[in-house]
């Protein structure tokens, strides 16, 4: 398995990278962690003429907190996210999700930016980012723009990124006290894409009422899906088994999974319901410091 020949560019600045993208148009691909792209190139499913490697551009790998927002540089590796104390402090969901992404070697290379920019509903971060209500920063020749995560995923392997834009940063609002988050996916074996995956972040008050909630679903829809009706079923309400059941039911109704080797459509819908239930409970437990 060997890729088709291509030209390799390794720009040293973002401006150079964008200029190369503009020059080569659709013939160019951005190489980040490469663990989605290079396998596709080896299988010759992807045959770019130009590969623009952004790994040499300084200043794209960081995880920091600024004014109530956690900012993650697009080149941050999954392993860095897995072990970040800052993320552990605010978002236990990252420890849940990264452990389930591929395997340790892949996590040493795979980047969070690539995971999102690939636009694959089977990837795990899209659902997490939806639950966390993240914002994606896209940089092009005219500067940077913010794209709310809900507007980022367009279709099968397509995102709101323009051809000459590069995903450079992810911004996540630091949640208030009383917030918890959790992710789980069912997988056929460790490192597999999800049979179904559910990400939840919620905030509860002292009475157990849900003050804020985000629920994202992995690999049960052609594009990454936010379970809006499920969120509504819990927002402003007490987190009890009745409301959770309703949220679970809505998510299973609103997703649109396809049957494959992982299971039937019916199974996946049922698993979405099970996981919504479990992840809401787990997030709520974490929110309440249990």
């Amino acid at each position: 398995m060997i890729p088709q020949s291509f030209q390799y560019e390794s720009p040293g600045t973002m401006a150079d990278a964008i200029a190369l993208l503009e020059k080569h148009g659709d013939e160019a691909k951005i190489l980040s962690g490469g663990h989605s792209l290079i396998p596709m190139m080896k299988l010759r499913f992807a045959t770019p003429e130009y590969l623009i490697d952004i790994n040499g551009i300084p200043g794209l790998s960081y995880i920091r907190e600024e004014k109530g927002t956690v900012k993650i540089g697009a080149l941050s590796r999954e392993a860095e996210i897995e072990h970040s104390d800052l993320l552990k402090k605010h978002f236990p969901i990252f420890a849940d999700v990264t452990k389930l992404i591929a395997d340790p070697q892949v996590r040493n290379r795979g980047t969070i930016g690539g995971n999102l920019a690939h636009g694959d509903a089977a990837n795990d971060h899209p659902a997490v980012m939806m639950a966390l209500q993240a914002t994606v920063i896209a940089t092009g020749s005219g500067g940077s723009r913010s794209i709310p995560i809900d507007e980022f995923f367009f279709g099968f392997y397509t995102t709101a990124l323009k051809q000459n834009e590069i995903l450079t940063e992810i911004q996540i609002p630091v949640p208030p006290a009383g917030t918890g988050s959790a992710y789980h996916k069912l997988e056929r074996k460790v490192g597999d894409y999800a049979t179904a995956g559910v990400a939840v972040q919620l905030t509860v008050d002292g009475k157990g009422v849900c003050k804020a909630i985000g629920i994202g679903l992995t690999n049960v829809n052609p594009i990454p899906l936010r379970a809006v009706r499920s969120e509504q079923a819990l927002l402003g309400k007490v987190i009890n088994s009745e409301n959770i059941a309703l949220a679970a039911q809505f998510a299973s109704e609103d997703c649109n999974p396809s049957a494959d080797l992982r299971g039937s459509e019916e199974y996946k819908r049922a698993m979405v319901a099970v996981l919504v239930k479990r992840m809401v409970l787990k997030a709520a437990e974490r929110a309440m410091g249990k």
Partner: peptide
Amino acid sequence: CDTSSCGACTILLDGKSVKSCTILAVQ
């Protein structure tokens, strides 16, 4: 393998374990 699945090609790149079948030599 062809799909970064088996890990037989694992090496250390700047001290990090990586699958050398899914990295270009130029990288």
